[in-house]
Amino acid sequence: MTSTPDHQRGDAADLQTLARVTARVRHNVEKVVEGKSEVITSALVVLLAEGHLLLEDVPGVGKTMLSKALARSIDCTVRRIQFTPDLLPSDVTGVSVFNQDTREFEFRPGGVFANLVVGDEINRASPKTQSALLECMEERQVTVDGTSYQLESPFMVIATQNPVEMEGTYSLPEAQRDRFMARVSMGYPVEAAELAMLQHHAGRDPLADLEPVTDAAEIRKLVSMVARVYVAESVQRYAVAITTATRRSPDLELGASPRATLHLVRAAKALAAVNGRDFVLPDDVASLTGPVLAHRVLARPDAAGARRSSADVLARLVAGVPVPGRAG
């Protein structure tokens, strides 16, 4: 093969654009959320892979700040829903209201009608409201009174939740956690980052200065580019081997679903693209098993008793799956 096909040359140029745009967004968000570039990258990967992100951590570590900063960096519609126990499903999806003037029912869109939906403290809402949101996430449409309304594209929900042990919360059932492509934890900032935060943010809203660095149209283009990233069969097998291993592991009560495999490979493609590659490496897959799979699997009580989190069990499983390619 001596000549380079045009479409490939185009791909290479596109990939550079993609890498540039994501770098810009990341840089922008980092102005607000310091020292969390890994979390930011995960968020971008989920956005480009058309998934939804679950941010889980104790209050006050910047979950909302991160989602807001991400939304601000992209010139697109953003809605924020603060979940409370009295929030109704219709507040999320929208409602048909009888218009006195026109004598007709007209649809008043709910909180999900936006490119980016920030669902704050999703585990404070009632299960009924939670499931309304999750249904929209999966189907990317809202059906009210027999009429379907398409959601915007790109569409991404960034839901934040406090760890379930906290008071006054309804934890998300496993089936609904499965809808989220990835779950990431913010973690406490390192001391230097916390100090920098104090110096920069004291007294004014850091979000106010944030300018959008891209827009919805560009993100749509990037998403289509990610879909074209190549996944070798050996790498596909590798992903399947990992999820299969979670189902066979004696340490896990619940393994990963086939949807999880799908999400894993899609996220891996996005990660490869973000790293400027038009093909997926096993490393991409392996590095995403934590965020993509950990919230879907359930460690056995005895494994949990041995103080092993799902993430630890997964890390061990992945280490045991042979890497495709020549051994050695």
Binding site: E38, S42, V184, S185, G187, D283, A286, S287, L288, T289, G290, P291, A294, S309, A311, D312, L314, A315, R316, V318, A319, G320
Partner: peptide, 20 residues
Amino acid sequence: RPASTSAGPGAATPRPGGPG
């Protein structure tokens, strides 16, 4: 095994003499 799966915190634990 180096921390190739360490996107999430706590994932990278050194494994002396593990199965790999």
